[in-house]
Design a protein around this nucleic acid. Sequence first.
DNA 1: CGGGCGCTGCTTACAGTGTAAGCACATATC
DNA 2: GATATGTGCTTACACTGTAAGCAGCGCCCG
Lengths: 232, 232
Amino acid sequence: MHQEQHPAPAPTRRLSREAIIDTALAQIDRSGAQSLSMRSLAQELGVEAMSLYRYVEGKDDLLERVVEQLMGDMTSRLDADLTEHWQGFLQALANEVRRLAVEHPKAFPLVATRPPAAPWLRPPLRSVELVNTFLSTLLGFGFTDEQAVHTYRSFSSFLLGQLLLEASVRGVDPVDTPFDDADPSGDDDESTLADAPQVLRLRPLLSEDRSEAEFETALEAVLDRLARDLAQ
Amino acid sequence: MHQEQHPAPAPTRRLSREAIIDTALAQIDRSGAQSLSMRSLAQELGVEAMSLYRYVEGKDDLLERVVEQLMGDMTSRLDADLTEHWQGFLQALANEVRRLAVEHPKAFPLVATRPPAAPWLRPPLRSVELVNTFLSTLLGFGFTDEQAVHTYRSFSSFLLGQLLLEASVRGVDPVDTPFDDADPSGDDDESTLADAPQVLRLRPLLSEDRSEAEFETALEAVLDRLARDLAQ
DNA sequence: CGGGCGCTGCTTACAGTGTAAGCACATATC
DNA sequence: GATATGTGCTTACACTGTAAGCAGCGCCCG
């Protein structure tokens, strides 16, 4: 029904919702969500801005679609990832969401901070299917309603805090060459840190990127905690 | 030095950085950071938009100042709040930041998600002084450098996840009268939830606002975990 | 006291944003 | 071939942040 009948009608002249969303995501990955405009997006698609409105309700809708695309087949990947204990499920979910944050650090803030469609959709778990999978999986493992919901809450805020911070670290462009940044005397850091001796002293330690290891251990801590809560 | 010499020169005609920042915060509290514009802010101050630029570098700078104002005297309040054990300090800090999130739910996303000035400033702890107080307090309690930094990391992502979610729940305007929202048949919720039976079933449970209690118990969990880490 | 000077707020202007409304043309159908 | 349908373009408007320069006031100094 929706098939093309021409052998090769035009190079890329044909617009499509998918292409728009993909290009939008690409542009966000490249230069951040802030600098995405309907016009720049249209230009990259070789098209005029208003043409996009045939496929998308507006910018908000577009961003929502991008988020939807990112959450994408996470649900299916998790269904396939059947494990024997709930810890395995949560671990798989955590890794899945983290992969998203690491692969799209500039886009992750969208997933994390866009106003959720419904009050029970807690970022960064933004798809109803996914939340449903979450709840029914846990219920399947014998959780009570309260336990499942409590776990959902704990887990989402764990993911949000951990990954939003990690994404924001990974999201900054390496434009700031950390050495030789002109201005060798009144360095921005030094001046601000004048009366913050501990920060100054611990700066190298604070700047280390331990995010992967920290994520793992924090995840284990959360799982431990949940196990303890369940046992009690 | 900065004294006024006139008895009463004009009603409010005198602009000031403080007044600008306060009004900006008020406007954000009222209608969200999204809808704050230099022009609307100027109008509320009975002034033209460009006048603001005498006191503020630009909009980004303004928002940064608002954040600064919010973090405000938190450091001093914490210094006064000397406690005997590090748990007390972290508890006081947590409550302080949570108070901020609860009192300014619409402004808190700024604190939480604005790109931090330095990589070692992890939202929502956005002031160098505060971070310095954090570190030196913990060091004062006998923490090693690594332990202090680790605690700083754990604690900031705990606060971020927990409070960003709480603020986003509290931040939505009660415009959505939950009943009688026209459109009685194809309700947005029902339609989306058609194939998410668990979400549909648990909706009341999911919509409950347990944020204060959850915050307390999550905080205790984090403190327990940290205590365990330290002992080992 | 007068003349400059600096500060304050205003005016104008421009480039950029999201998007509403209607037009032109290519395509698909009868 | 005529007509309907959709696709992309054009134009337009209200709004954003902000650069540049100007008008008037109060202050200080000669």
